[in-house]
Simulated scan of single mutants.
Amino acid sequence: MASIGYIGLGTMGRGMVANLLRAGHDVTVWNRTAERIATDAPGATAAGSIAEAVAGRDVVLVCLSDDPAVREAVLGPDGVLAHVAATTVVADMSTISPTLSDEEARAAEERGIRFLDAPVFGSKGEAAAGGLWVVVGGDTETVETVRPVLDAVAETVHHMGGHGAGARMKLVGNLVVAAQLNVLGEALALAKRAGLDLHAVLDVLHVTDFRSPIFDGVGPAVLAGDYSPSFALDLMVKDAHLIDAFAAQVGCPLPGLAPVLDNLEAAQRSGYGRENASALIKVIADRADTHLED
């Protein structure tokens, strides 16, 4: 079993740390809000600093909310790379810009530290169940070294290529997630305006060749008026901006992203930022002058 330093104990981190412990790994956790460690990660060792969390660890996992948090925690003067041993593998599981991910990889290489970008698909439920899908960038030998650790939190692990490939794949995938949430909202609004029974609509969406787990999970929650957060809308807005910038960087027009981002930002302005990302559907329904709840 591995000794692991875990940086960040947010919605995803709680489930991942629990599964790492369940698999028999020795886990030391640092979190900006230190008092949460005892309640959210029982069984883990609490660290008072990043330096303490990473000292002598086999693997360090980082899972933070955005680029500024990662930059400070990984690249900062008191960050992971300033204190980690050369024998440790560092894997960043955050959803961040490919530019920052590449910067992390270069900084790690300069220090002789093995580094992977390893963001995850899934949300709170998958994290708790150990059913995340991990997309990894880095060299094959390092991926195989940490695979037993990643297997503890994942349903599947996908090696996408060299450094940065995982970070890029995460944005490609989140484009699909955002588009599906948006189109589900539009479809339900159209169906409601057309006088269709929305439960019957979801029954059809469940069995067709264009069915989706997102439709199956989010659809009934929308009809129940349930927007409790598994993945906060604020984070989806952040990711949509990352996707937009990434697409511009590689010269790929994404005309379908603009209306999705418009609905997300409107939902954020309406105060739905801490609700589930599916709360953009409330904006779509309002714009269609209809209500989707039972």
Rank of each mutant, 00 (worst) to 15 (best):
R193Q: 13
M16I: 13
V250D: 05
L81T: 05
F210I: 15
G130D: 08
S65V: 12
I113C: 04
A53R: 05
L184P: 09
V157M: 03
A129K: 02
L188G: 08
F121M: 14
P220M: 04
A288I: 12
S49E: 04
V218H: 03
T39W: 00
A258G: 15
L81H: 07
V153G: 00
A73H: 08
V201F: 11
H25N: 08
D294M: 05
R14V: 15
A194R: 11
A85M: 06
A240W: 11
A44R: 01
P77Y: 04
A53Q: 04
P42F: 03
L171Y: 08
L280Q: 15
A69G: 09
K170L: 07
V183G: 12
S278D: 07
I281M: 06
A248M: 06
L9A: 01
S278P: 11
S65C: 10
G273V: 11
G5P: 08
A18T: 03
I50A: 14
A38D: 09
L264T: 08
S278F: 03
L61H: 04
R147A: 10
C252Y: 00
A240K: 06
G273T: 12
V177H: 00
P77L: 13
D78W: 03
A44L: 04
D67G: 10
D197P: 06
V172E: 00
H291Q: 15
G138S: 07
G256Y: 12
C252D: 04
A165F: 08
S278Q: 07
A91D: 07
D234P: 00
A38L: 01
D244P: 05
D102E: 09
P253G: 02
A73D: 05
A34L: 07
V90G: 09
V70N: 02
T99K: 11
A191F: 10
A44H: 06
G225T: 08
R71E: 15
D78T: 13
T39M: 02
R274M: 06
N174W: 06
G130H: 08
K238L: 03
A53D: 12
D78F: 02
G251W: 09
M93S: 15
V250R: 02
D244A: 14
P119T: 04
L261G: 13
K170Q: 13
